[in-house]
Structures are given as structure tokens and as C-alpha cells.
Design a binder for these strands. Structure first.
Lengths: 326, 326
DNA sequence: CCCTGTGTCCGAAACGTTTCCAAAGCAATC
DNA sequence: GATTGCTTTGGAAACGTTTCGGACACAGGG
């Protein structure tokens, strides 16, 4: 920038003003500066820029789990889009899955002076974020120990929708397979219970299956065991897209096919031998809303109290959820 | 850091030395400094750190297409992992698909003083990267106008493998559906041609289908048209996972099912009515190798000339590719 | 002619590190 | 006791930007 100033025969301040907006600079001077910028191929150093007091870098941090999971990938993509429109870059923290790793990743990102954090939180306390003086938006689930914005899906409503749908087909024994993601899972279970209560049915607790892991493999194993019981369920509610995959995998070896409803849509769901009925929400919108909110917080545009935004879920009937009880 | 120095009663230089490695500091002094750091909750400001001359920030930039595509998501995940191990963060450029947008995104990232760039390049000239003095590794395909490292897949070999497999089943009319991603697609086509030549067959150019877009929709439409011809192909080679999806979608309405081989594996491929045969490579490894190479370049550890690394492809037989000609 | 206000421009200060040089302390050697 | 060399420490300079107070020029009003 100093070089540009010299070349154009002006002061640093003038160059800086031209580079940003350029108010209060005579057009003639400004064009001279612009010429010098082009000749020298000058590019503003964002790092130095972010160093100034009070300034934050123009990047957002995104902390989430496995990008290979389409759910997270969709959120990331949406956030990237929205942030990009505002000239913000997105820094992806490396996430090691365990809460301690998450904490370290977040600290790391704060050290990079990001303008805001978008987090799909792990369990564990997040109160260390409170004092950081940096806007935070949680996505998909709330965090403990801090009262921040949160954008999520109507898990309870979705769980209820899925279960009601199965019960409405006349299923009396509907199992739910729960991935260990405490919050969302808990809500979906609550919806499941509520649907039962609404239908005047008692929940058979042996049909509430807690998986040790959220993987397709764990779900497959659990489903196999479930279907080998003397009195297997005739309806299955898979609380996650990966769980649904595992369930379907296990059901390939089963004679009496139970009805299946999944939570969250997934690619190819409509192309399987029996197309899969799911309860889904607009995941991209989830990411977009979160990103926009975070940008507004970072810019200081939005000064409302912590928001709690919930997106609705819809049932997509494709076949697997409409099988009658056997 | 100044506060820490005051608190510990030492100079700035000493604190800095403790914070990094801490060589040449008496243990007693070092522990006093560490105590002060803990008390004040001090955290190094990465931005200021990257400002020093010659220093680059400890982040890698990653520029790639749609994260929703599992291929890209897998690369991103792998890069994230590897970079994280070295304490590097990953900045995701927002990619608008068009070459101009890509260029802008890259310039943006360079302005952020990233230590290196990992790019899945769009078409168009990338020579503007040559003068930036920043290591670049291209992934999946080379770029024009610059001689940099590149990590990719054996597209030609894969294309050949897929085609040979189909020809070996006795298929005489094998079509190839090409997504418009010039380089990879061209290589796969070359493999297709080579397989034909190897089998002593002439390629029917009407069976080489260039799709207007790389989407499942475009592939679905093209497949439908293809199969409605008077003399439809009995074997199909889908050059991409999305293309394969479209192909399979179209084939649901077709009586005489042709054999299908896809390029790149995808989730649920083994669960479709006819499990899908694909030619696949280790995409995660692709990302890992690229990230490692970039880190070594950035650290100055690796000073060899531009590398050109090619990963092999393997055929995964699942059924769809083993259908006999009809 | 002086004063004031306005529009433009200049350049020093500040941001929080790292690095480098110099200084200080200490032990060993002469 | 002086010299030398090594380890440890202190602090100034530098990085590239933004911001801010002030300077300068010029126009208009008194």
C-alpha cells in the first residue's frame, strides 16, 4: 500500500480511503490511485487489516461434525454461499469428535479473530464462549452454559409426525432407534411418546432402542437383533439418515418387512427397492438462516436478544412408511 | 502478551519464546510465564502472528465445487483432518462455479495470507497463481498455465477398466455419458476408446453422449433418449456419481435393463434394486495426500519439482455391471 | 482583508506478534 | 583478575493496514 501511495504520489490515508468505498477523495485523485493499484497488482492484506483495534477478520468459523454426512455438508454449503455474498470466507475448524477436541478447535478459531462462530455443538459445556466477546450461533441443537442464538429443526414435531404416521397405518408396535446425539434424539423421542399418548397407546420401553453409536453399522446390528425377537415391531422409526441406512441394510435379510420412516431425507431414498418415507426439513435453509443471523450479529445490525428459530418438518411419503402391519 | 509479560515480570521476547516451543528459557522463568498465561487466560493472536514478515498464517485454503457432492465432501474432510493434525485451519473459499468467481475467490484467499492453496480447478487459465509466491496443489485435475503439484485419479485407467468390463460381458454397444468436466471426462473417454481398440471394436460415436450439465437430471434425460433409440446400447458407462444416479433413475422405466457401470462409488450403491457396479478410487486418500503435500510445501520441507501423483482405480462388482447383453 | 466552513489530503500512531541485537549473568580458562 | 564463550533475558523494530487529528486550499460572507 505504501508503494501504491508513492506511485500515485499521495498519502497512505488516501489510498486506504480509495480501497474502501473511497468517500472524501476527489475523483481525479482516486483514479490515479486506482491506476497505481492496477499497475502494481496491489492486493489488500486482510491480515493486517484485521489487526486494527476493534476490527475482526472478515471470516466466519464453522464447527461441525463429519462433512461426509450430507446433513452437515448441506449446512456448510449453505453457510458458504451466504457468507460469500457478504465477502466473508468460512474457516472450517478441524473437529475431532470428542468435546475436548471441539473446545480446542473453537479456541483456535477464536485466536484467528474470526468475526463469528457457527457451531453444531457437541455435548459438554460451552460457557467458555460467553466471555469471548464474539457472536455465536448454534445450529441444529442448543449448547449448555451459554445463552446464544440457535437455529434448529422441530425435532419433537418431526418425531411425532413420523410416529403418528406409523400408528395411523394401524401399527401397534413401533420401535424407535436412537443415535446418541442427546438433544435432537431426545426431542424426537419425546415426539414419539407424544404420538403414542395421543393415540391412547402405551409405549413399550423395549422398543426404544439406544444405539451405542450413530453409525449405519450400529443401526444395522440393532435392527437385526430387534427383528429376531419373538415379537418384533411392525413399524420402525429411524432417528437419523445414517440410522435409516443401517435399518434398511438389516431389513434386506428379513421376511416380514416392517414399515420404516426415517428422519432427514437422503439421496437415493426414492430409488431403493421400497422408496423410503422420511420426515424432512430444509437443511440448506437451516444453514442459510444461521449464517445470515451470524453475519447480522457480527455486523452489529441485529441487536435483539438471543433468537430461537425452529424450522418445520414435513412428511414425505414414498412407500416404506405406508406398509401395513403384518 | 504485554500483559502477560508484565504479570510475570519478564520481557516480551521471553513470553514469545515460551509460547512457541520455549527453547532458551530457564525452566523457572518459563513456568512463571505459563502461570501468568493461565491467570490471564491469554491466547495468542494468530492474526498478529501472521503479520510478521515472511510468516504466513497457519491456514490452508480449499477451493472446490459443491460440498453436497460426496466426492468433494470427502476431499474436504480428509484435508481437514490432515491439516488439523499440523495445527492448520482450513479456509473454504466460496465458489460460484463460474471461472471468474473462482478466480475472485482465490484472490480473496491469497489476501488472507493463507499458507497454501488446495484447488479443484475449474477450466480457464490459472497462470495468475504463478506469481503469488504461495504453494498450490491441484486436486482431481490439472490446471492450465501453471506447473504445480497435482494429485489425481487414474481416470483413463478407470475408464478403460469400466469399459473393458462391459465389453468382456459380451456387450457390443456400450454408451458413455460424459459430464462436462473437461479434463477428467476426457480421460475417462480416452480409456473408453482404448478399451474398444483393445477389444478390436469400433466406437459408435452416437453412443458418446456429452451431457449439457453434470447433474442427475441431465443424465436422466439423456439416458431416456438414449434408450428410446431404435438400437439402444446394452451397456452404459456413467462417468460420474451424479450421472450414474440420473442413469439409474431413467432406467426405472425401461424394460430391457442394460448393464451399468459408474465412476466413483456412492452411498447406497449396494442397496439399490440392482446393486451398482462402479469403478472407484480412494477419494479420502486423494484429499489426504494433497493436504500433506501442500503442508510440506508450505513448511518448505518438500522442495522437489512439481509432483504428479496418480491414484489407481478399482472395479467393484455389484451386479449392475454384470448383466449380460439383451 | 479577515474569518469561517468545507472538502481534500497527509502522516503518525496503534494493533499484537516475532525476530534480532545487545546486554547481563555466569562459568570456565588463562 | 581478566578474558572468553555460553545461556538467558530485555526491548526495539518491523509487518501492512485503518483511523484520527490536523494541515492546507479555497470559497463565501462579513
Amino acid at each position: 500500500m505504501i508503494d501504491v501511495a508513492k506511485r500515485a504520489g499521495v498519502g497512505l490515508g488516501t489510498v486506504s480511503r480509495v480501497v474502501n468505498g473511497g468517500a472524501g477523495v476527489r475523483e481525479e485523485t482516486a483514479s490515479r490511485v486506482r491506476a497505481a493499484i492496477n499497475e502494481l497488482g496491489f492486493q489488500r492484506n486482510e491480515v493486517a487489516r484485521a489487526l486494527r483495534p476493534g476490527k475482526k477478520s472478515s471470516s466466519l468459523a464453522l464447527v461441525l461434525g463429519d462433512l461426509t454426512n450430507p446433513f452437515y455438508a448441506t449446512i456448510a454449503k449453505a453457510a458458504l454461499e451466504v457468507a460469500g455474498q457478504d465477502g466473508f470466507a468460512v474457516v472450517l475448524g478441524s473437529v475431532d469428535e470428542d468435546p475436548e477436541g471441539e473446545r480446542r478447535a473453537i479456541q483456535e478459531l477464536i485466536g484467528r479473530q474470526v468475526a463469528g462462530l457457527m457451531i453444531v455443538p457437541d455435548q459438554g459445556d460451552h460457557s467458555f464462549l460467553a466471555g469471548a466477546g464474539i457472536p455465536v450461533v448454534f445450529v441444529d441443537r442448543p449448547a449448555h452454559g451459554i445463552d446464544a442464538d440457535i437455529v434448529m429443526v422441530d425435532n419433537e414435531g418431526g418425531g411425532r409426525l413420523a410416529t403418528e404416521h406409523l400408528l395411523a397405518q394401524g401399527h401397534q408396535r413401533v420401535a424407535i432407534l436412537l443415535a446418541p446425539s442427546y438433544y435432537t434424539t431426545g426431542r424426537r423421542l419425546r415426539g414419539y411418546r407424544r404420538a403414542h399418548r395421543g393415540a391412547g397407546l402405551e409405549v413399550d420401553e423395549s422398543l426404544v432402542v439406544q444405539l451405542p453409536e450413530g453409525t449405519a453399522e450400529a443401526a444395522e446390528k440393532a435392527t437385526r437383533e430387534l427383528m429376531h425377537r419373538p415379537d418384533p415391531p411392525t413399524g420402525l422409526f429411524a432417528s437419523t439418515n445414517f440410522v435409516a441406512e443401517g435399518v434398511l441394510r438389516a431389513l434386506r435379510e428379513v421376511n416380514k418387512q416392517p414399515a420404516v420412516v426415517g428422519f432427514d431425507d437422503f439421496r437415493m431414498a426414492d430409488m431403493l427397492p421400497t422408496p423410503v418415507t422420511v420426515v424432512a426439513s430444509d437443511t440448506a435453509e437451516l444453514g442459510r438462516i444461521a449464517a445470515r443471523l451470524l453475519l447480522d450479529r457480527a455486523a452489529g445490525t441485529d441487536t435483539r436478544g438471543p433468537q430461537r428459530i425452529t424450522l418445520p418438518c414435513a412428511l414425505i411419503q414414498r412407500g416404506s412408511g405406508e406398509r401395513p402391519p403384518t
